[in-house]
Design a binder for these strands. Structure first.
Length: 599
RNA sequence: GGUCCGGUAGCUCAGUUGGAUAGAGCAUCAGCCUUCUAAGCUGAGGGUCCUUGGUUCGAAUCCAAGCCGGAUCACCA
């Protein structure tokens, strides 16, 4: 149990002992870190109890402070400042923490594995390559999967590929018209990009045809409907659904190109999946669920045969679930897929990483499943994130205004190379090592940039401004880590040493302020890790790890580690920085960010 | 119009169930490399926490009303 919780429990016990007649709800007890301008480590706010206990701040503070000093075994002294009880923790707590957790490589992790959780993320369309906005989705999903795993869940990483539909047919039609049989192999173009190019090509041709028809005197809406290339795409979709072998073969070929491209992108991004779902297999699901709902009269049929659910009682609208011709809509297949996932894995929770433009859809999805009494319903959680936009507005792949994911990675790697060379830090590396380093720095910066903000906030990325490698960045953390590794190398200590390297460590030495700041922060890691899972918010780990790196840098600047005042001090400091490095690695690894030993 | 989300320093963002004088990074300015990596450290300036009311010992945080921005409310996915 971390110190804050121990203090809270000790305070509950103390108040119960001091005031046996008055019930104090535990929720009234706040334990905060003491502000730097006061002496103390943690602070208990006295105001909430004053009235209940009919006490004055100083009197209550003295009673409580004395009791904690005498009974908790944690507190060595206290100070009362205008209603705040500032507690100083005994030195041995911190040194004992270092010793107790030094060999605990997974400090803060839980290992119960009592629940199975699926997290669906990425979920790309196979008509275009991944863009900058997808990166946020991919990083968030991957990071949350790791964070949930570290918090004791069995995690299934799922990817639902949108591999069918009119948009896929558009790329196919355009390829037939304009490509002259071009393939990734003979053009050297990555498969997803090649297919994406023809998707853009389709829309160009479509626009041209519309303006031609309008010039001939047709209404715009009619022209949109009548443009020959669009009719071709719609016809192709019908043939696809009918299983036309020619269309299916082309579809499989072009999707194959895209998958190969995606694989490469995923590999570079360092993300993976345990289970792939394909919409071409799931798009017909859900109809039987609708049938059941009709029988139970939870759903109703309109005159044209279409099936609806009435959600007006929940403040929402009526929602279509089956068209009049019996074909399914987006919601129908999502109902089916939700049940399929549940049946495949018996999930306690099913997390969907989807942009916030689908908040309404996800709310309705969950509500419908609840009304239908499906067991999967309550476990559904929409991890909604704000879209990444350009200064000019949304990215639109149809209009080619996207920042491509592959390009972005190249750009970040190039940038990190440039800055490494400018800083003159390339000595002592082989070419191969340098290449790996640039990737570590560049991709680390990219991931951190997208994960450091609260997921639900939308973000604007200006491609003209490069992603910074200074300040609140992965680079800053990587640099602090590399500095620690450098010290350890010089002391002939391995990166992940065991306790045996510190046998002469003396437990009773006092800690200087920067030392204690760092240890206090390290001790809180389990709390941060838990909050990141509970709030579905990886940015908490970014903030925390950055704070660690800041504290280390400041410490490093003020005190020499290698040339400490004496051997005991040196060992203490080495233990602190080893734990700092270990914790940074742990947190960043969850986010998919590597920390180099040298940079 | 209904619902949901956001509004904190010039910019990008933190701010844990209400707690002490609202914090970081970037940018600007001034210092710090003969000593463990200066991709760093120290300091300065910079705030009507959108507005107005309310709740109370105490509000950026909770409530109400309003203002601004965004998303969504398809027989699209």
């Amino acid at each position: 149990m971390i110190l804050v919780d121990q203090l809270r429990n000790a305070t509950v016990a103390a108040l119960k002992h001091l005031f046996p007649d008055t019930e104090i709800p535990g929720s009234l007890i706040t334990v905060n870190q003491t502000k730097p301008e006061f002496t103390g480590d943690y602070t208990i706010v006295l105001f909430p109890f004053l009235k209940l206990l009919r006490q004055k701040p100083d009197a209550l503070g003295t009673l409580l402070g004395d009791h904690l000093v005498n009974n908790s075994g944690l507190v060595v002294s206290y100070e009362i400042v205008s209603g705040f009880l500032n507690l100083t923790i005994r030195e041995s707590y911190w040194t004992a923490f270092l010793l107790n957790h030094f060999n605990d490589r997974n400090y803060g992790e839980k290992s119960c594995r009592d629940e199975r959780v699926m997290i669906e993320y990425s979920s790309p369309n196979t008509n275009k390559p991944l863009h900058f906005g997808h990166l946020r989705n991919n990083f968030l999903g991957f990071a949350m999967a790791n964070i949930l795993h570290a918090n004791g869940k069995q995690v299934v990483k799922a990817n639902l590929v949108n591999d069918r539909g009119i948009h896929i047919c558009k790329s196919m039609v355009a390829w037939l018209h304009f490509a002259n049989g071009a393939t990734p192999a003979d053009t050297g173009i990555k498969g997803d990009h090649l297919v994406g190019d023809y998707y853009v090509r389709f829309n160009d041709a479509y626009k041209t045809q519309i303006s031609e028809l309008v010039a001939q005197g047709m209404e715009e809406t009619a022209a949109e409907r009548e443009a020959p290339i669009m009719k071709e795409a719609q016809d192709m979709l019908r043939r696809w659904e009918a299983g036309d072998p020619e269309v299916r073969t082309l579809w499989e070929t072009m999707n194959g190109w895209v998958y190969k491209g995606f694989e490469e992108t995923y590999r570079r991004l360092g993300i993976d999946f345990d289970k792939m779902y394909y919409e071409s297999n799931t798009y017909l699901l859900g109809k039987s669920i609708v049938e059941k709902g009709l029988k139970k009269s939870i759903l109703f049929k309109k005159e044209d045969g279409s099936v609806w659910i009435d959600l007006t009682g929940d403040g929402l609208d009526q929602k279509l679930l089956l068209r009049g011709d019996g074909t399914s809509v987006y919601m129908t297949q999502d109902l089916g897929t939700a049940v399929l996932k549940y049946n495949d894995y018996k999930l306690a929770r099913s997390v969907y990483v989807i942009a916030d433009e689908q908040n309404y859809h996800m709310q309705v999805l969950k509500l419908i499943l609840q009304k239908l009494g499906e067991p999967c319903a309550d476990g559904i959680y929409h991890l909604s994130y704000g879209m990444v936009e350009l200064p000019t507005g949304k990215m639109k792949s149809r209009e080619g205004t996207v920042v491509d994911a592959d390009d972005m990675m190249d750009e970040m790697i190039r940038l990190s190379q440039q800055q490494t060379e400018e800083a003159g830090k390339t000595e002592g590396f082989s070419d191969e090592e340098l290449q790996k380093l640039y990737e570590t720095i560049g991709l680390g910066a990219l991931k951190f940039y997208l994960l450091r903000v609260d997921p639900k906030k939308k973000m604007i990325f200006d491609p003209k401004e490069s992603i910074d490698l200074h300040g609140f960045t992965a680079t800053f953390i990587q640099y602090a880590h590399a500095r620690i590794c450098s010290i350890l190398r010089k002391e002939n200590i391995p990166l992940l040493p065991g306790k045996e390297h510190f046998q002469t460590f003396v437990q009773t030495q006092p800690l200087a302020a920067p030392e204690k700041d760092l240890v206090r922060e390290l001790e809180q890691y389990p709390q941060i890790l838990e909050s990141a899972a509970d709030d579905y918010n990886p940015s908490l780990l970014c903030n925390y790890t950055f704070r660690l790196a800041q504290l280390f840098n400041s410490f490093y600047d003020q005190h020499s580690i290698a040339h400490a005042e004496n051997e005991e001090k040196k060992l203490l400091r080495l233990m602190i920085i080893v734990m700092a490095a270990r914790t940074m690695r742990h947190a960043m690894q969850l986010l998919g960010i590597r920390l180099p030993e040298k940079m």
